[in-house]
Amino acid sequence: MSPDSDDRSALSWFFTGMRGLVSLPALILLTSIVGFSAFALESGLTRAEAVFMSLAIWALPAQVILIGSMASGANIAACFLAVTLSSIRMTPMVASIIPEMRTKRTPIWALLILSHFIAITSWVFAITTMRNVPRQHRAIYFAGFGVTLTLTGTLVVAVFYGIASSFPPVVAGVLFFLTPVYFIASIWASARQPVVKLAFVMGVALGPLLALVTPEFDVLYAGIGGGTIAYLIDRSRRRKKRMVKGAAR
C-alpha cells in the first residue's frame, strides 16, 4: 500500500480504525476494564464517578493508583503526585508515535486532542498497524480506533459496574493475566528495530527488580535507565557496523 496511490476517503480510514475494536488487543483491554469496574465498586466509587474517571483519565494504572490514593485518605495534592509519577511514561509513549502519525500539515491542536486516547493498548495498536496506512490518513485512522475504544471502554464501566463483582474471583484473576501476556507477544512481534528488542528485555528485567528497591519510582527508573542502556548498546552496535562497512570500501 503506497501513500501515493491511495484514493480512499479520510472517512473510510476512520471506519477502518474503528474496526480495530474487533481485535485481540481491544477485547483484552475491555476484559481488564471489567475487572476495573469491580475494583471501583469495591473501593466505594459511584457508577457516575467510575464512568467519569474512565473517560477523563483513560489509563488503567493511573486510575488504579488514584482510587488507591483516594481510598487511603490522601489529600488532592498527594493524589496528584502519585498519579502524575505513574503517568510520566505517557510523554515518551506519545512522543514516539507522533512523528509517524502526523504530516507537515497536521494541526497541533488535533494531535493534542488525539493524545488523550493514547494509552498502552492504543500505543501498541499504533506501532503495529499505523505503518500500513497512508501517511495523510494516519491521524484520522488512529482517531477512529482511539476514540471508539475509549467510548466503548467507558460504556463497559457503566454496564459492568455492579455486575463484575458477582464473578468468581479466580475468573477475574485469570482474565487479569491476559493483559501482560498480550503486551509481551504483541510488542515483541511488532519490534522492527534491534533497539526495541533490547529495551524490551531491559524493561522486563528492571521493572520487577527496581520495584523491590524503589517502589515509588521503579517504572520511571526502569524506563529511562533501561531504555538509555538499550539505546547506547544499539548505538555502538550500529557504529561498529558502519565502521566495518567503511573499512570494506
Binding site: 475487572g35 475494583f39 494504572p61 488504579v64 511514561r89 515518551p92 509513549m93 512522543a95 514516539s96 512523528p99 498502552i120 500505543w123 474471583p169 479466580v170 477475574a172 484473576g173 485469570v174 487479569f176 493475566f177 493483559t179 501482560p180 503486551f183 509481551i184 510488542i187 519490534a191 528495530q193 533497539v195 526495541v196 533490547l198 529495551a199 524490551f200 531491559m202 524493561g203 522486563v204 528485567a205 528492571l206 521493572g207 520487577p208 527496581l210 520495584a211 521503579d218 517504572v219 520511571l220 526502569a222 524506563g223 529511562i224 535507565g225 533501561g226 531504555g227 538509555t228 538499550a230 539505546y231 544499539d234 548505538r235
Partner: peptide, 29 residues
C-alpha cells in the same frame, strides 16, 4: 537519532509495567 532513544525509553517503560503485572499482580492473581 533522538527518536531511537525515545522509542527505547517508551518500550522499556511499558515492559516494566507489564513485567510488574506478572511478578506483583493485584487482586486474586
Amino acid at each position: 537519532e533522538a527518536l531511537y532513544w525515545v522509542r527505547a525509553v517508551a518500550t522499556a517503560l511499558v515492559m516494566a509495567v507489564t513485567a510488574k503485572l506478572i511478578v506483583f499482580p493485584n487482586g486474586t492473581l
